[in-house]
């Protein structure tokens, strides 16, 4: 699995950080998403998919495989 985020689209809701803090963080200066791990471990895959689904801005893309 590969994850990408679009910091222009992000509205800083923090939903992804709540879902998987191991993979997503927010920048101290502006609260916008920061990707911590582009290739998350299998144990996080389900939560990463959930994060992409709850992201209100559609800023998270999950590339499966």
């Amino acid at each position: 699995m590969r994850v990408s985020v679009d910091t222009e689209m992000c509205c800083g809701s923090g939903q992804c950080v709540l879902a998987v803090p191991e993979v997503f963080d927010q920048c101290e200066e502006d609260g916008i998403v920061r990707l911590l791990d582009e290739h998350p471990d299998g144990e996080h895959h389900e939560d990463v998919r959930a994060a992409a689904a709850v992201c209100p801005a559609g800023a998270i893309t999950v590339h499966e495989g």
């Binding site: 509205c11 800083g12 923090g14 950080v17 709540l18 803090p21 927010q26 920048c27 101290e28 200066e29 502006d30 609260g31 916008i32």
Partner: peptide, 15 residues
């Protein structure tokens, strides 16, 4: 909207 909201997103971030 984004201009104003982004001035506040850091204040309401999870951490």
């Amino acid at each position: 909207h984004a201009r104003l909201r982004r001035m506040l997103t850091a204040d309401f971030m999870i951490k």
